[in-house]
Amino acid sequence: MLLKVENLHAEIDDKEIIKGLNLEIKPGEIHAIMGPNGAGKSTLANVLVGRDEYEVTDGSIEFDGEDLDELDPEERAHKGMFLAFQYPVEIPGVSNKFFMQTAVNAVRNERGQPELDMFEFDEFAKEKIELLDMRSDLLDRSVNVGFSGGEKKRNDIFQMALLEPKLCIMDETDSGLDIDALKLVANGVNSLRSPDRSFIVVTHYQRLLDYIKPDYVHVLYDGKIVKSGGFELGQQLEEQGYDEIIRHYHNG
């Protein structure tokens, strides 16, 4: 088991958002988490990677056989967790190249691998840029500054490729993307799929899933997973919306 979430409760600003959530993910699996606005999807993504503002009040998160309790976000990144942001952040004056070389070396250090020097990193980055079919001037620009929405999301996928994580959590990566940008992001993800890399795709809509084809689809509502199924559950939600599931949850 790569990720095992048991009876997770989490709050922000004293408000409980995640209310007893269970989730198990094996290496190589792709899980989609869907749900209406306010269900707790983004909170779940942020709690998994250990963002400060969120507090776990009960339950546990086990990753790669280790309890993540109290681990900082950077330590989780070192262990192979990656979050693709709903809104990737701009960092003026810091080049993508310097940022990612620092990040890659921080992770390599933790894994006991030697650091990459400037030339080795250039080679490594070039490989990934080609794999993802991205523009090579990406590296010289300040992190996300002056990037379009689509470019920012693709930059996150590029970072994912460089850090080679075990679990990629994609927080509404599809929001705000037109169909071409969406396809590029989906292609990026598909090219990074492997038997020992798992994905959690958090999304409101089915359309990204048409390109990524998850193994499992879960519906998150009121801080809990209220229904799970295969790829066809996403399609069913696309047609029927969440109303039926919500009504069933409240009556059940």
Partner: peptide, 21 residues
Amino acid sequence: FYMQARGINKSDAIRIITHAF
């Protein structure tokens, strides 16, 4: 947080941002 999520520790992140600024 963005930098932490990429594996850079908090004090290094602050240092890098301040430096660039």
